[in-house]
Design a binder for these strands. Structure first.
Length: 968
RNA sequence: GGGCCGGUAGCUCAGGUGGUUAGAGCGUACGCCUGAUAAGCGUAAGGUCGCAGGUUCGAGUCCUGCUCGGCCCA
């Protein structure tokens, strides 16, 4: 051989068209279009028909606005669950849904009205609701497209909407089940109320502004007390809402607060007999207010001190007790934990009609609201003091009404009960977002679901439902009654929680929650379809009437509940004039709490079933959907609507801070898809620990993109290395070299991890295990070692065939593992190898051959390999050795264990080390390295003794090239 | 303010029932290869395990307080 031939042509390099660069933002939409064209979701249903089902029931997002990162995380997790269960061979249909009723949509529509100078109240309710419906429908379409772009697989052409008439009818049917089992009652509750708009307001509709109010100090004469010296003294209360004094029903003290009894002194420092009770800590500020009333020298003598709790049993009378009736009733002093010494007098006047603390404390002591202030903010006509008919009556939020010279203060002064009044108190006060007018707390009648009323589950007639919501759980033992709270707590115990801590979270909430307030004074929602007997106040329970109501709603939607329709709904047996038609709508949580009924049970989606295998939402839903669904189902079916509940944390910014538009630290999934692609968001969502709050940011996304590239290149290598591979080349496992058998064993180990991760919904471990395997076991170990074999051995060589057989097995396993995560890329990879064999997502969990290997031997061998590469490093640094193939290695083999590796094949260790020849020595030292004296084979670049000159062929290559030349 | 949850290398995460110098992958730096090449391989540096007390022979791991952050309430 006189000149060196270029052997590049005789080397089998990986060959593939699969590009290294992903270009996901451009590529993904095309892949998505192909799926939609082929209706992949329908194909999947067909393929899994008859299999064991796995039902993930979708919690409906609110149909308003573009999706945010929280939506993306939630839907990707759901998709990963559905896809991984599908991969296991189960039939896992996914019907996405939307929550469509409710305030935020009402607002948006109202806002549009205002821009057009229209008044909502002048628009017919039906028309207004139609606009809300259209608004929601439009956002459903937008979000649908965005979710699909994320690669979420589901029945997008038939989602469920809470505003669909069938859904509205089913929700009504569920409500009527509560009515029929006596699980509804009308009570009262203070709500934020705008007298200007004559409507209740939600917290979010209220804005706080600084205002200056009248502040007054009012005395209540103590008429009874276990403490004798208090009788005849006056308890002093302080308030900034004088208008609530006419509705006062009690006083509150702080059990832990210290009080002082003082006596006013006259100008000669003589006692006047006027004694007042205030909190010790607030005595100074109280006195300065009195002095500010033109009594700059007013002094007091201390009479005694009391701890709050000793005031129990003390009773006052109202300053206007002379009016008789309501005002002559006793005003007890009640213990209130909410009483502080921040301001006022440490004694708080209680008007259960107009404060939450007031309401709760009074209710606990059997004192009920009086509903004195009407919707327009004026006292009602029959009220004793300042009734509507009084010329001085006006809206209670009118500053003049509350002024020191206004009717209330004037009358109090006349009664000798006004110690001080001034118009200089600055504080923050709630105003209507819309009208900017002040709002008040006002008690209004509301509908409740009792948590602690014993009911006999299922022992009641059920309205004929005609298919919608008709599937009611079979009656179980009706002999034992249980409260809703008890049933719910039992259901929680019967449910699997992932992570486990969710059980405690929802459990403590259900244990402590108050009765469920169902009613809202709103327009866009499902009506509380009850007729209330005007005489008895009882709501009508008649299965036939209920059936008519349900049928009407199914036909016309929520508009079916109207005054015009009332006679027909009631039917001939009732006189419409005897009944009040309830006009409140349902809390939207009742809507979504009923989805299990109208989605899982209705038969509209026959592929679904109830209870669901899994509900999966953010941790805020412990108070939301998880709970409303639980309560709704427990009240009507006696069990939870789910077998398992999975909760995820919230996505924070890169620093762990909450995202907000005002901070400008939001990350939009739409932007990430545009810049990186949906597969990157998916890989991110499935890499983080979703059980806790987790982060996203530029650095994190860059890291995720790196991980993605590694996976992509692994597949690219597999595609290239498997170029031209067919079944005919496959070799049985028992004919494979030890390395191949070891790799198959590792794959089996990985397979076990992946299955366990799917069962635990632990996608973090799932993706990590996959990536680590690609990095450590494949790229840095197996692929690297077998590079020589792949490139240089003859295609028919059993070793090369074994290698490619294992690569093929690896490919088929890894592409399936990757499919639920990298939905687009896995399809791209699959299509690159199998352009005509359908979607990768139709495949099932890989069958991995069970192979036994000596794990401890391989662990020791890999440890030795690490030592060898470490030992080569210094020689590389000094440039003695460049490629590891130039390194000759001696390894210690005192006990002769390594010698058995020789049985594993010629040059076995050199192969594993990717080094030059390996020799055994009897020392206790680590591996020894020296530069080889052998020449470099011109084809495989290994340094071997038979190579006479650099560029000549080694024996193996000579053999291969000869064969190839002959075959050519 | 209350209930619940969390804070381990630059990033993402492991660290049964407390026990040798706290681990992995990625990234970074440096080097090798130039026949996976905007790829592949190797080596190295990086952590007072949020802070402070306490229990213990010994604590990332148990207790208390604090701090920061989160969800839900008020």
């Amino acid at each position: 051989m006189t000149e060196n031939r270029d052997y590049r042509d005789t080397v089998f390099l990986p060959q593939t068209d699969f590009p290294m660069k992903a270009g996901l933002p451009e590529k993904e939409p095309h892949i998505l279009a192909r799926w939609q064209e082929a209706d992949l979701y329908a194909q999947l249903r067909e393929a899994r028909s008859g299999r064991e089902k796995f039902i993930l029931h979708d919690g409906p997002p609110y149909a308003n606005g573009d999706i945010h990162i929280g939506h993306a995380l939630n839907k990707v997790l759901k998709d990963a669950v559905v896809r991984s269960q599908t991969l296991l061979g189960k039939d896992a249909p996914y019907v996405p849904g939307w929550d469509c009723h409710g305030l935020p949509i009402e607002w948006k529509v109202e806002e549009a009205y205002r821009k057009k100078k229209l008044n909502k109240d002048e628009v017919p309710a039906e028309e207004f609701r139609a606009e809300c419906r259209a608004y929601a429908a439009q956002w459903v379409e937008v979000q649908k497209a965005q979710f699909q772009r994320l690669g979420i697989s589901g029945k997008w052409d038939q989602p469920y909407l809470t505003m669909a008439p069938e859904a509205e009818a089913a929700i009504v049917a569920e409500l009527l089940k509560f009515a029929e089992t006596g699980q509804l009652y009308r009570g009262a509750k203070p709500v934020m109320w705008s007298p200007v708009e004559k409507t209740a307001l939600a917290e979010a509709e209220v804005e706080y502004e600084d205002i200056t109010s009248t502040q007054i100090d009012v005395t209540f004469e103590i008429v009874e007390s276990p403490i004798a010296e208090l009788v005849g003294a006056h308890a002093v209360i302080w308030t900034t809402t004088p208008w609530t004094i006419p509705v006062n029903q009690a006083l509150a003290y702080g059990p832990e607060v210290d009080y002082i009894l003082i006596e006013a002194l006259d100008e000669f420092a003589e006692p006047t007999g006027q004694r007042y009770l205030v909190a010790t800590e607030l005595y100074d500020s109280f006195r300065s207010r009195i002095r500010g009333q033109g009594n700059p020298n007013q002094n007091y003598a201390t009479v005694d001190f009391f701890v709050g709790e000793t005031l129990a049993g003390t009773i006052c009378r109202h300053p206007m007790h002379h009016l008789g009736g309501f005002y002559a009733e006793p005003r007890p002093l009640l213990p209130g934990d909410f009483v502080t010494t921040d301001s006022g007098t440490g004694l708080v006047h209680m008007a259960p009609d107009h404060g939450e603390d007031d309401f709760a404390l009074c209710k606990a002591h059997g004192i009920n609201p009086k509903f004195v202030v009407e919707a327009d903010g004026r006292y009602r006509e029959d009220w004793l003091w300042l009734p509507r008919t009084d010329a001085r009556n006006m809206s209670v939020i009118n500053p003049k009404f509350n002024a020191p010279d206004g009717p209330i203060c004037s009358d109090l002064k006349e009664a000798g009960a006004l110690l001080a009044a001034s118009t200089d108190y600055q504080h923050s006060y709630p105003h209507s977002w819309r009208s900017k007018a002040k709002v008040i707390y006002r008690c209004t009648p509301q509908w409740f679901v009792p948590m602690d009323k014993p009911v006999a589950p299922f022992d009641y007639p059920v309205a004929p439902l005609g298919g919608i919501g008709g599937a009611v759980a079979l009656a179980v033992s009706a002999s034992k009654t249980a409260t809703l709270r008890e049933t719910a707590i039992k259901a929680i115990a019967d449910t699997r929680f992932v992570p486990e801590k969710g059980r405690n979270r929802i459990g403590s909430m259900v244990e402590g929650r108050p009765d469920w307030v169902l009613s809202r004074q709103r327009a866009w929602g499902v009506p509380i379809t009850l007729f209330v007997d005007r005489k008895t106040g009882e709501y009508l329970v008649d299965p036939e009437v209920n059936a008519r109501i349900i049928a009407a709603v199914r036909e016309k939607g929520v508009d079916a509940w109207s005054d015009e329709a009332a006679p027909a709904l009631l039917g001939p047996d009732y006189n419409v004039d005897d009944y009040e038609r309830v006009v409140d709508i349902l809390d939207v949580w009742f809507d979504s709490g009923s989805t299990h009924a109208f989605v899982l049970e209705s038969g509209v989606w026959p592929e679904l079933q109830s209870p669901a295998d899994l509900y999966l939402e953010g941790s805020d839903q412990h108070r939301g959907w998880f709970q409303s669904s639980l309560l709704e189902s427990c009240a009507t079916r006696g069990r939870a609507p789910y077998k398992a509940v999975l909760t995820h944390g919230f996505t924070m910014d890169a620093k762990g801070m909450k995202m907000s538009k005002s901070l400008g630290n939001t990350v939009s999934p739409l932007d990430v898809m545009r810049d990186y692609g949906a597969d990157i968001i998916r890989l991110w969502a499935l890499s983080v620990d979703y059980t806790e709050d987790h982060r996203i940011g530029p650095e994190i996304l860059k890291g995720v993109a790196d991980q993605y590239r590694k996976l992509r290149n692994t597949f690219r290598y597999l595609l290239g290395a498997l170029d031209g591979y067919t079944e005919a080349e496959a070799l049985p496992v028992d004919q494979m070299p030890e390395l191949e058998r070891y790799m198959l064993a590792l794959l089996g180990e990985l397979d076990g991890k992946m299955r366990a991760a799917v069962d635990a919904f632990d996608f973090n471990t799932y993706t990590r295990s996959l990536i680590d395997f690609c990095n450590e076991d494949l790229s840095a170990f197996f692929f690297d070692i077998r590079k020589d074999c792949l490139y240089c051995d003859h295609p028919a060589d059993p070793k090369r065939r074994a290698y490619r057989t294992v690569l093929d097995t690896m490919f088929h396993a890894l592409i399936r593992y990757a499919a639920p995560v990298l939905v687009f890329t896995s399809e791209e990879v699959w299509a690159s190898r199998y352009p005509t064999s359908g979607s990768v997502h139709l495949l099932e969990w890989p069958v991995v051959p069970a192979v036994e290997t000596d794990a401890s031997r391989w662990n020791a061998l890999r440890e030795l390999r690490t030592q060898v590469t470490e030992a080569i490093e210094p020689l590389r640094r000094e440039k003695t050795v460049r490629s590891s193939l130039e390194a000759e290695v001696t390894v210690s083999d005192i006990d002769g264990v390594l010698r058995e590796y020789r049985d594993l094949g010629p040059d076995f260790l050199a192969e594993i080390f990717i080094s030059g020849p390996v020799a055994f020595v009897k020392t206790t030292d680590g591996p020894g390295i020296s530069r080889t004296e052998h020449h470099k084979c011109g084809r495989c670049w290994r340094h071997l003794p038979e190579v006479a000159e650099d560029g000549d062929l080694c024996a193996r290559c000579d053999d291969v090239v000869t064969k190839l030349d002959a075959e050519a």
